[in-house]
Design a protein around this nucleic acid. Structure first.
Ligand code: SF4
Ligand code: SF4
Lengths: 154, 154
DNA sequence: CGATATAAGACTAAAAACATCTTATATATC
DNA sequence: GATATATAAGATGTTTTTAGTCTTATATCG
């Protein structure tokens, strides 16, 4: 297992959407800027989240992404695994057949246990709870706030 | 965090040495053959284990490796971290300064917790316990058994 | 000394991660 | 309907990491 950048970015994306609540449309640009993720990269990640049924993508002018479920129904585990696939600390955890020794291997059992524990911990964390303690103050985003002039940048 | 091949091989190496017990000299070749690890790769891994004080390397003819500690004193965690460095599930766990958001981030806290839990689980597993339930029957290795002719191969 | 074994690190190949770019398509607004 | 804007989809490119090999040097036994 390895939490890649894509995985981390996916979490940030859902986290930001969760701040706006279920169903609210948020532009890719806003998410990208606010969570510090390369916009084109975010597009890819969003597609994976959409395939997993976590978000919905709206195309066209004034398009963007929206959460399909309530933040309390979305876990860290679901978001991570939507992007990097099922967590597997060692090859033999996800594919026991990759090591002929796995049926007898006592180390294998430790990995299995650790893996299960890790997934459980990540499953316990839902985005409603995460947001509750989150001190993030959601200041208006330029585009959303109704004027187009750049603020600060340039 | 990511258990690399080197990490997995390191565990196999220590596991094999543990079967022979603390202090017993075992040739690199035997370990490599028995645990299915490329010999030159094993050399590298052994050096890391030696630096971490887990094994001792004996050079010269009839050289090899030996465990410095009792198997019960060696944990999975120690071996893994000797090779891949301290376990860190996400960048921000090992280096909080890598994300300016880490002091406030609620996701960060979940990672910290999960990381701590994982390390604890791997620390609980020592090689004496692992070997106890290990059904491996240690048949004599050709070189060790006192004759030099190749068996089976070629 | 000579045979054998590891040390140490350079080197290479392959894979994965990370990111960008291009072309196509969908939608709102005029 | 035309146009501008936003995402879709996937090809492409760059960089980093992993995995493994090779070469030269050194240590030890007999
Ligand atoms: S030796 Fe054990 S821990 Fe290692 S890959 Fe095989 S089954 Fe997994
Ligand atoms: S946003 Fe939170 S979880 Fe993600 S890298 Fe920063 S501190 Fe870690």
């Amino acid at each position: 297992m390895r939490l890649t950048r894509a995985g981390e970015y996916g979490i940030r994306c859902v986290q930001h959407l969760a701040r706006h609540g279920k169903g609210t449309l948020v532009s890719r640009k806003e998410i990208a800027v606010r969570t510090d993720v390369p916009p084109h990269f975010l597009a890819k990640i969003a597609q994976q989240l959409a395939r997993a049924g976590i978000i919905e993508i709206q195309q066209g002018a004034n398009g963007g992404y929206r959460l399909l479920r309530d933040p309390s129904e979305i876990t860290l585990l679901a978001v991570i695994e939507a992007i990097i696939g099922e967590i597997s600390l060692n090859d033999c955890v996800g594919r026991p057949e990759s090591c002929h020794n796995s049926p007898l291997c006592t180390v294998h059992r430790v990995w299995n246990k650790a893996n299960q524990q890790l997934r459980a911990t990540l499953q316990e964390a839902d985005f409603a709870t995460l947001a509750k303690e989150d001190p993030c103050c959601l200041t208006p985003f330029p585009e959303t706030a109704g004027h187009n002039g750049p603020i600060g940048k340039k």
